[in-house]
């Protein structure tokens, strides 16, 4: 009954998933290509930019074998623009990156969090799914690869607060049809907001349980008239039998 962990992913788990995302690095040392279970990693040749999973990039960065190239959106001008959008539109989150055109029949379909478009090839004007985790991890491990790490950090903090405040306010508008628009929300934000939002939804559902049930019953009764008439008919027949 009492699981030690709440449902859903914990922040470290979300961060772990985020480490599968590709980032660009500029290697300082040569490394042959690696064939791993998660796919092969291309050979690293020093001056050439290469895309590798975040976990490998962090590892190489820590060993001073590579420099990380921050994704284009993780720069002050673009983050400022997104932050402005967030503050100007109190009802919607900034739109997620555009999805690529549907792939052909013979290519592998990636699920949205792991698209190259979300990180390496991301446009600078949208926050990818793992924006918060990726930003925090890169800022922590590779501050020196940013031109202006401090303002990026400040902008990320600002974005996080604005978006979480919006997410919490959504529950107020949670209405009878039920549903909160969460387009463009990130993985870490889902992890943070999950228990509160599900708590509110569950509480409301408990209060409205009987009401909704009765309304549904009333709906089916109005909709399907035929079973009732059969019952009425039976009753009438029984009455006539009794009276005769």
């Amino acid at each position: 009954m009492a699981l030690p962990l709440p449902p859903g992913l914990t922040p470290p788990e979300v961060a772990f998933l985020c480490e599968m995302e590709l980032v660009s690095i500029i290697p300082r040392q040569r490394l042959d290509s690696l064939d791993l279970l998660g796919g092969s990693i291309p050979a690293l040749v020093p001056p050439h930019k290469t895309s590798v999973p975040l976990w490998l990039a962090l590892l190489l960065k820590r060993q001073r074998r590579a420099n990380i190239v921050p994704p284009p959106w993780l720069a002050p001008p673009w983050l400022t623009a997104i932050l402005e959008y967030e503050t100007e539109h109190p009802d919607t989150f900034s739109p997620p990156p555009r999805l690529p055109p549907a792939p052909g029949d013979h290519s592998i379909v990636f699920s949205p969090p792991f698209l190259p478009q979300s990180t390496v090839e991301a446009g600078p004007d949208a926050l990818p799914y793992h924006w918060l985790e990726l930003g925090e991890m890169l800022l922590e491990a590779a501050t020196d690869d940013f031109e202006d790490g401090e303002s990026v950090r400040r902008l990320l903090q600002g974005l996080r607060e604005v978006r979480m405040a919006k997410l919490r306010k959504r529950t107020e508008t949670l209405d009878e049809p039920g549903g909160i628009r969460m387009n463009g929300i990130g993985g870490m934000e889902v992890a943070e907001g999950r228990s509160f939002i599900t708590g509110v939804v569950d509480g409301l559902r408990r209060i409205r349980a009987t009401y909704e049930e009765k309304r549904r019953e009333r709906g089916t009764e109005d909709g399907a008239g035929s079973p009732r008439t059969v019952d009425d008919y039976d009753d009438d027949e029984m009455e006539t039998q009794l009276t005769s």
């Binding site: 914990t10 922040p11 470290p12 925090e136 870490m188 992890a191 943070e192 509160f196 708590g199 509110v200």
Partner: peptide, 27 residues
């Protein structure tokens, strides 16, 4: 009691994210 649980949940999840960020700095 329902609301207290809600408060605890909201507080714990925010704290978990904060803890994760501070743990990142320790590494």
């Amino acid at each position: 009691e329902t609301e207290r649980k809600l408060f605890r949940d909201a507080h714990d999840s925010a704290k978990a994210v904060r803890t994760w960020i501070t743990d990142l700095k320790k590494k």
